[in-house]
Design a protein around this nucleic acid. Structure first.
Length: 902
DNA sequence: AGTTAAACGTA
DNA sequence: CGTACGTTTAACTT
């Protein structure tokens, strides 16, 4: 049986371009290759999986086609082709030439028309046809012998669109798809659909009236708003239908018979792939095309063993000796409010072999052998997201030592502004290896496992395979990422800071912080009652109790239509109703509704915060937050479930929430107090250090109030004569500088004219020239090198510094200003946390660290240890780095977090 | 049901 | 038209 495979070269390369991060795919000469890489990868996969006898790739020639002649707006409004994509289509053609694969393009027609024509020819000869395209228009070609392979996501997941699949997904058979598309529209072609008509409605009508002409003929019978809209847009729908019809009789320079698969040009493939620096892909290509008998392989090949009772010690001694790096992947029970669940199973991978161990099935001897291995710091382990996994093991009485890498942390240090460090993503990016872990990708029948015995169910085997595949990926990734770390400084940042910090954070999470639950519940009710009262007052003020005060949309109606108040700043969807704007309106109008509304906002917010905290209290009466170590691009930690880094402090009422965090107890008895220790003005001190500005350094060395000192220089008066207004202006500016503040932003914040703000900034920079020079140089240096760096060598890449787009470039410039400062502060407190914990351990005290809030540490103090711990914390925080200015630490103690403030 | 935008809390 | 985050709610989408 002959089988023709047709690919849409442009659409697939374009899909690949967006699926793969461009910065990870470029040659040493700077040519981007993500599009051509992804296309080639897809090509290899379909060749392997579909074994076609005939093959061609179609391309568009230009945007000018018969469709643009008929409808000038066709495919208009598209973003211009990204510069990194330019040239990649030609590279795709080079690859095809080397593989002796025919490519076809015809002036005035799109790739899909070429595909439609070839499909018609092939079908008339009784051939089976496979189309691989990212363009949905090709769905109209699907029939019993024609299947569309449509990229679902990424470059390795293709949906197999048969007639049944089309019907299932769109509710219409393939020959009616174009009718549906004409109604719904196709945004990528700039063909607008009928407003209010989605695929569901369109499919319903098509079923009801047979096809589009049936709908047109019976347009008067279409019901509802959507029906009226369709009648109003009938011409447009008919035009859409004419444009989305593919042309199946294009005159082509080739016939189907010319497309028979030929041998390929080995020399040329080597030359082209060398130029593109595709090494892994070349191996895959050769493996796929050279062995005709090569069977389809699912994901990674893993040589592994499902360990049976009594086999653990043996495996470990063979594959996990001293110095032998072993990856661990833990499967655990669901997490609880108190933290991660207990470990249930384990995947291990050494250099060659992998193993799987189900903990409930392990014998006491097995567990002992495992425990010895895990606790042995001379046997190196690597994990992905180690913190949670180690906690799960420890819950099961299996402490872990000797962790030499965490692949999520390593990947974070390499590129700190990624959204996720998902293992499968990292595997694809750094190993160029697809981690196929979906259950559906591994139907039982294809599981051909060389390990395990008859008692293992298919589900056991699938779980085992998955853990071993994970472990193998973690092992190989840890090696690959070691090489990706920029320099010795970054390796030490991982080994000496981030990795040891995992343990500190883990213990802080596990300990949690005690909460006065009854008081918190009372407070929640109090805030709730106050919110209720505010709502009543607000409703009364406008004589309307139907308004949802929490709905910005409804508020806009009330404020700007019903009450006719002056319009505020624009947002995407209307006018802002944020607190600043409402306060401004209140100042102008003194309308009682505004006062009540603001009060309602405040109280509701407090109530909701209290509510969330109550929900988070675990059975031990404490709140166990989770610290995320790979989220903030600057190097800070973040806190989730719940976020304990944004508990209110600025207002009196907000601070009452801090009173709810109290000193608690442990198995040995109660603690004495909470202690809060924070760095004062850490960011300005780092600015002084990094800039070397003599004036600012002197400010910190004299011990004079910083803003008073700076104010006296800026305004040219004695420190004693600096008024509160002068001080607050200078304070706002000092802090703003580290964020890339503009004169405009400063004027807005201080409520002064832009001119006045400009003068203020000029005067500031005149007096503190070192700061001005530093801020200028830090951006220039980052533009040159492509990244910023903190005191400990933590890098943040900012490619947008050279963007043509002003908005993006200026955003990147502000990030470049801020990242070294915020990031260095993060470095310092991380060092302080490590040393503080170590010093507390050496001192043998019971007191312990509970929270980190960027520049503050909260500790729980055991009876009689207050002075000793204060000394330790002051010393370790103060000595975290040797800066050109002192690091000032202020400490407070009390029964609650609020009382410990100072 | 799942996503996005607005609002707002912290450093 | 100042950085870095996380959470909640309403509204939008299908």
């Amino acid at each position: 049986m002959s089988r023709l495979l047709l690919l849409d070269g442009h659409s697939l390369a374009y899909r690949a371009f967006f699926a793969l991060p461009v910065e990870n795919f470029s040659t040493s000469t700077g040519q981007s290759t993500n599009g051509v890489y992804g296309f080639t990868s897809m090509l290899i996969n379909v060749l392997r999986d579909e074994t076609p006898t005939h093959l061609a790739v179609a391309f568009d020639v230009s945007r000018q086609t018969f469709r643009t002649e008929q409808y000038a707006e066709y495919k208009a409004g598209r973003a211009s082709t990204p510069s990194e994509f330019v040239g990649q289509v030609d590279l795709v053609k080079e690859v095809l030439n080397a593989l002796r694969i025919t490519h076809v393009q015809v002036d005035g027609f799109e790739a899909d028309d070429v595909i439609a024509t070839l499909t018609a020819q092939a079908r008339s000869q009784g051939m089976e046809v496979l189309i691989c395209s990212g363009d949905r228009d090709a769905l109209q070609l699907v029939d019993d012998g024609t299947t569309l392979l449509y990229p679902r996501k990424g470059v390795s997941d293709l949906a197999r669109m048969t007639p049944a699949a089309v019907l299932e997904k769109y509710g219409v058979p393939p020959e009616r798809y174009s009718d549906l598309a004409a109604l719904v529209g196709e945004s990528s072609d700039n063909l607008p659909g009928v407003p209010g008509v989605g695929p569901k409605t369109a499919a319903k009508w098509i079923t009801q009236f047979g096809d589009l002409s049936g709908i047109v003929d019976h347009a008067d019978k279409l019901t509802g708003k959507a029906g009226q809209a369709t009648r109003d847009h009938l011409d447009q729908v008919i035009r859409n239908r004419r444009l989305n019809q593919l042309v199946a009789d294009v005159e082509l320079p080739v016939t189907v018979d010319d497309l028979a698969v030929r041998g390929w040009d080995r020399e040329e493939v080597h030359r082209v792939f060398d130029g593109l620096e595709f090494r892994v892909l070349r191996e895959r290509l050769f493996a796929t095309l050279e062995s005709a008998e090569a069977e389809a392989e699912e994901g990674i090949e893993v040589e592994g063993t499902m360990l049976d009772a009594g086999e653990v010690a043996g495996w470990l001694s063979l594959h996990a000796g001293p110095g032998e790096r072993v990856a661990l992947v833990v499967q655990a029970a669901p997490r609880t409010p108190a933290g991660p669940g207990e470990a249930t199973a384990l995947g291990l991978a050494g250099g060659e072999h992998a193993a799987y161990l189900s903990l409930p099935e392990a014998t006491p001897e097995d567990e002992t052998a495992l425990a010895v291995f895990l606790a042995d710091r001379t046997r190196p382990k690597v994990l992905h997201e180690a913190k949670g996994q180690i906690s799960s093991l420890e819950l099961r009485g299996l402490p872990v030592e000797g962790v030499v890498s965490d692949t999520s942390l390593a990947a974070y240090l390499v590129r700190p502004d990624q959204r996720s460090y998902d293992l499968a993503d990292l595997s694809l990016r750094y190993l160029r290896r697809e981690l196929r872990l979906d259950e559906e990708d591994q139907p039982d029948g294809t599981l051909d496992l060389s390990w395990g015995d008859e008692e293992d169910t298919p589900a056991d085997r699938a779980a085992a395979r998955s853990l071993m595949v994970h472990a193998r990926a973690v092992h190989d990734l840890s090696v690959a990422l070691d090489a990706e770390l920029a320099d010795e400084e970054e390796r030490s940042l991982l080994g000496e800071v981030e990795l040891p910090l995992v343990g500190v954070l883990r213990r802080m999470e596990q300990v949690g912080i005690a909460v006065d639950l009854p008081a918190l519940e009372a407070l929640e009710r109090e805030f709730g009652d106050a919110a209720e009262q505010a709502q009543q007052d607000a409703w009364e003020a406008i004589a309307d109790d139907s308004v949802n005060l929490g709905s910005p949309k409804q508020l806009q109606v009330v404020l700007f239509e019903t009450l006719g108040l002056p319009k505020t700043r624009r947002t995407k969807t209307g006018y802002t109703t944020d607190a600043d704007a409402l306060a401004g309106l209140y100042a102008q109008t003194e309308h009682p509704f505004l006062e009540a509304l603001l009060r309602h906002r405040d109280k509701t917010r407090l109530r909701v915060t209290a509510e969330g905290l109550i929900r988070s209290v675990a059975d031990d009466g404490r709140i166990h937050t989770t610290y995320q170590q790979t989220i903030a691009a600057t190097g800070r930690l973040s806190s989730t479930e719940p976020n304990l880094q944004n508990i209110p402090i600025r207002t009196e009422e907000g601070r009452r929430l801090r009173e709810m965090f109290v000193v608690g107890a442990d198995a040995q008895g109660p603690y004495e107090a909470l202690m809060s220790a924070d760095y004062s003005q850490i960011e300005m001190r780092i600015m002084a250090h990094l800039s070397g500005d003599e004036g600012l350094i002197e400010a910190f060395r004299t011990g004079e109030d910083l803003h008073r000192f700076v104010g006296s220089r800026v305004f040219g008066v004695d420190p004693a004569e600096v008024t509160p207004e002068m001080r607050s202006k200078v304070k706002a500016m000092s802090y703003g500088l580290a964020y890339g503040l503009s004169a405009f932003g400063l004027s807005k914040q201080l409520g002064i004219s832009t001119g006045e703000a400009k003068e203020l900034m000029d005067e500031y920079f005149e007096r503190f020239g070192g700061v001005r020079d530093y801020l200028r140089d830090v951006v220039a240096e980052a533009r040159r090198s492509g990244f910023t760096e903190t005191i400990l060598g933590r890098r943040r890449h900012l490619p947008d510094l050279t963007s043509d787009n002003r908005q993006r470039r200026e955003m990147a410039e502000r990030m470049a200003l801020n990242a070294p400062i915020q990031g260095s502060a993060a470095d310092l407190i991380k060092i302080a946390m490590l040393r503080t914990e170590e010093a507390l351990r050496e001192a043998g005290v019971r007191s312990r660290m509970l929270l980190q809030v960027h520049d503050e540490l909260v500790l729980e103090i055991a009876p009689g240890e207050r002075e000793q711990v204060e000394r330790i914390v002051r010393e370790q925080m103060g000595a975290a780095a040797d800066l050109r200015v002192p690091l000032d630490v202020s400490v407070g103690v009390g029964r609650s977090w609020h009382d410990a403030a100072h």
